[in-house]
Design a protein around this nucleic acid. Structure first.
Lengths: 128, 128
DNA sequence: CCTTGACCTTCCCGTGACTGGAATCTTTAT
DNA sequence: ATAAAGATTCCAGTCACGGGAAGGTCAAGG
């Protein structure tokens, strides 16, 4: 399989796949013409990566997960630890965003939003 | 005021303040020794920037807000529009993160997290 | 056989918003 | 006089790619 075909199959842009090779996440073979040749295991890996990235795992976490995935004697606890760590990160991000939203929503609420220059949003940004 | 002093006052790292000057958000004067000299208006601007950034506004949005802030004849509707746009962005991010969290939490829930290699998290990442 | 167009290759630069570090002044304190 | 603190510029790196240039390869059509 050439890169275009596997790109379509996995939904990842060809550029991304080349990048994943660059940083050692996949190691496709090469044909006589220099083209990358992807086999089924590469397709699996790339699909895995696509899903893990969609869940917000960092590249390094993906690398870790891939290693665990390939290690048939891994402990599921190790996988779970990575996932739980990431869950915490997500929760923290959500909390931070929710706090921003609340503050900002309150400012917006108090702003008339008309032609007049008086604006509680700007005032709120000036100082407490 | 030198950069260290204003950095402490605004809570922004000196590096960040220099960067803000680089991209034209603030334009401190210069003393005879080449040091930046910050005046009160600079302090206000930097405080404003710090708060706006803390609320997640991008640098370009901050630039826009600063311009509105300096324009005494602005319409509060313009400010409100920027803020509402950003609120939408925040909501979208929260939704995306919540979806990740839910999916991931479900995978984690089903994983025993013990010494055995069987792991629903990895299986969930393999395919649907 | 030649050309066209689709596909592939590498390489380098740009993104956002900084952060770290090096090499070099200037000021301040002892 | 010297040492430390604080200032300056500039360069490089971060994360995870994306854009685009310059060029090699392949299949189809004339």
């Amino acid at each position: 399989m050439n890169i275009g075909e596997i790109a379509e199959q996995t939904g990842l842009p060809a550029k991304t796949i080349r990048y994943y090779e660059d940083i050692g996440l996949v190691t496709p073979q090469r044909g006589a013409n220099g083209y990358r040749v992807f086999r089924e295991t590469d397709a699996y890996k790339l699909t895995f990566l696509g899903r893990a990235r969609a869940l917000g795992f960092s590249i390094e976490q993906c690398r870790e997960l891939l290693a665990l995935w390939e290690d048939r004697s891994r402990a599921s606890a190790d996988v779970r630890a990575v996932a739980l760590g990431h869950l915490d990160d997500i929760e923290a991000k959500i909390s931070a965003l929710a706090a921003m939203r609340d503050t900002l929503a309150e400012l917006v609420q108090n702003c008339a939003g008309d032609d007049r220059p008086d604006c509680p949003i700007l005032k709120g940004l000036e100082g407490p």
